[in-house]
Design a protein around this nucleic acid. Structure first.
Lengths: 135, 135
DNA sequence: CTTGACTCCGTACCATGGTACAGACCTTAT
DNA sequence: ATAAGGTCTGTACCATGGTACGGAGTCAAG
């Protein structure tokens, strides 16, 4: 364990090296000590399975719509085992997702109807554009 | 017609004055001539129903997930009556919305299961946090 | 023991969609 | 005629989530 360089970690997580460093700056990933032959402050940082899991956690949570700030909070909650707050965050996110999903569905259906109308209608203005204009 | 000041237009569209100016800079809204008692370049700009419709169009299209750049394109297409391209944009957007909706639904369901699991499970680590970590 | 690839670090820059001034000007009511 | 409040213009700044780059250090192979 702890054999990966930063490029290896990035590859394992499907992100770029600069993104890993960015997450470190944001406090989402740890920055291990540089270890090398010449003691203090020399050498290269190495990463292990834990870091890969953490990085993948970040990407999954991000896919679920959490912001990096919320993800940092989830990580902190994990450390102190605060289930109540974690549940709270999860429920907030579910509500936000539900709202957004409904909105996107409505938009999708409206657009779908419009594209069909645009196929059918032969004269006059394009329904796709006019439809967004109230009346 | 054409009796609104910029603040009236902004109010009618449910946005701030600075947002209207921003849309003007982006070419999404027109910037009418300043008209006043002292000729050239004096006076205040006035807006009418057309502008309100345009502003609402922008907000609706935005709600459907179009970027401001795409909205600018839709507006331009309307002007030259290019239905083919408008349909193309609509279909692209529908596909993107479908993908995003599916992704968000999956995330929503996963989170929902997790919140329930977090209620049930009494000992051990919080499932909400561990679940995102692949094994 | 040099060469080439990679790392480290700081800082700067990017896109997107705004928001916030400052300072001058204009309009409207009193 | 003057004061209050809205407008105009330019420029600067904001959050979010990265991406790029320069210059120095380090590591591994030949």
């Amino acid at each position: 364990m702890r054999e990966l360089t930063i490029a290896g970690l990035a590859r394992a997580g499907g992100v770029g090296v600069e993104t890993v460093r960015y997450y470190q700056r944001r406090g989402l990933l740890e920055t291990p000590e540089r270890l090398g032959s010449m003691g203090h402050g020399s050498g290269v940082r190495r990463y292990g399975e834990q870091d890969v899991r953490r990085l993948r956690f970040i990407r999954s949570a991000q896919a679920a719509g959490f912001t990096l700030e919320q993800i940092a909070e989830l990580i902190a909650l994990d450390a102190i085992d605060d289930r109540t707050r974690a549940r709270e965050l999860a429920r907030e996110r579910i509500a936000a997702l539900d709202a957004k999903i409904a909105e996107m569905k409505a938009a999708r259906d409206a657009l779908s109807r419009l594209a069909r109308a645009c196929d059918d209608v032969s004269g006059g203005p394009c329904p796709i554009v006019t439809a967004f204009e109230p009346q």
